[in-house]
């Protein structure tokens, strides 16, 4: 820390990345951003960090965001359907639509 070509650059960076990590976590996108200090001489470390992070992201599964990109009901409900707990005070579920078409 403080060992930066841009003087205080890494101080700023760490704050900003921490900020972004917290914000993404708040929205439900945890663990998809990572910061590491690697000098241009540390090729081994660079490879290690990238490899580890790639594995970590792979373990998180596919990016959930594209599911929201289509103007189709399915896009919304598929994600809302999963892991959607009941909230206190919410209305009881509507009875399923009866088949009016025999």
């Amino acid at each position: 820390m403080g060992d930066c070509h841009y003087l205080y650059g890494n101080y700023m960076t760490i704050k900003r990345i921490t900020f972004l990590q917290e914000l993404l976590t708040f929205l439900g996108l945890e663990g998809r951003i990572h910061l590491a200090w690697i000098s241009s001489a540390e090729a081994q470390k660079f490879v290690q960090v990238v490899t580890d992070f790639t594995e970590k992201v792979r373990a998180l599964g596919p990016n959930p965001l594209p599911t929201f990109s289509h103007n189709k009901k399915a896009a919304l409900s598929s994600v809302l359907g999963r892991g959607m707990g009941k909230t206190p005070g919410s209305s009881p579920p509507e009875p399923a639509l009866q088949e009016v078409y025999p």
């Binding site: 289509h70 103007n71 189709k72 009901k73 896009a75 919304l76």
Partner: peptide
């Protein structure tokens, strides 16, 4: 005939 932004929120579209 098209899928519009409100289709996402429809009970049935």
């Amino acid at each position: 005939p098209r899928n519009i932004q409100l289709s996402r929120f429809a009970d049935v579209s």
